[in-house]
Simulated scan of single mutants.
Amino acid sequence: MVENRPVLKILTHVVLIAGIVFLCFPVWMALVASTHPGEALARSPIPMWFGDQGVENYTQLLTGGVPATGGVPVALMMWNSLIMAVGITVGKIAISLMSAYAIVYFRFPFRMVFFWLIFITLMLPVEVRILPTYDVVAQLGMLNSQTGLILPLIASATATFLFRQFFLTVPDELVEAARIDRAGPLRFFWDILLPLSKTNIAALFIILFIYGWNQYLWPFLITTDQDLYTIVMGIQRMVNVGEGLPIWHLTMGTAILAMIPPVIVVIAMQRLFVKGLVESEK
Results as ranks from 00 to 15, higher is better:
T223G: 04
A255R: 07
A183T: 08
I222M: 08
D225I: 01
M269N: 12
I180M: 13
P262R: 10
R271N: 13
M269I: 04
L196M: 15
Y211Q: 07
L257Y: 06
L272W: 14
S197F: 02
A268W: 10
A203S: 15
A268Y: 10
I235C: 00
A203V: 09
W218S: 06
I264Y: 01
P262C: 07
V265L: 12
L257M: 10
V265S: 09
I231P: 00
W248T: 08
P171C: 03
I231G: 00
N240G: 04
I267A: 12
I201A: 08
H249W: 14
L272V: 03
L257D: 03
R237V: 05
L194G: 04
G242P: 03
W213D: 02
L162C: 02
F188W: 13
R237I: 04
L208N: 06
T224Q: 06
Q236W: 12
F209H: 08
L208F: 10
I222F: 05
R187F: 01
P219N: 08
A183R: 14
R182N: 10
L257K: 04
H249L: 14
I256H: 05
I207D: 02
T169N: 13
I264V: 15
D191M: 05
I256P: 04
P262H: 06
L272C: 05
R182E: 08
F163A: 07
L245H: 10
A258S: 14
F220L: 15
H249M: 12
R164N: 09
M238G: 07
T199R: 05
F205I: 00
N200P: 00
L196W: 12
A258W: 02
N200W: 04
N214F: 09
G184K: 05
W190N: 12
F189Y: 14
V239S: 11
R187D: 01
P219L: 09
A183I: 07
F167K: 07
D227T: 13
I207T: 11
L174K: 02
E176V: 11
L250Q: 12
P171W: 03
V232D: 01
A258N: 14
P219M: 10
P185M: 01
T169Y: 03
R237G: 04
P246H: 11
W248N: 05
F205Y: 03
I260N: 13
F188A: 09
A177K: 11
I192G: 00
R164W: 09
R164M: 14
D172V: 06
L193C: 14
P246K: 12
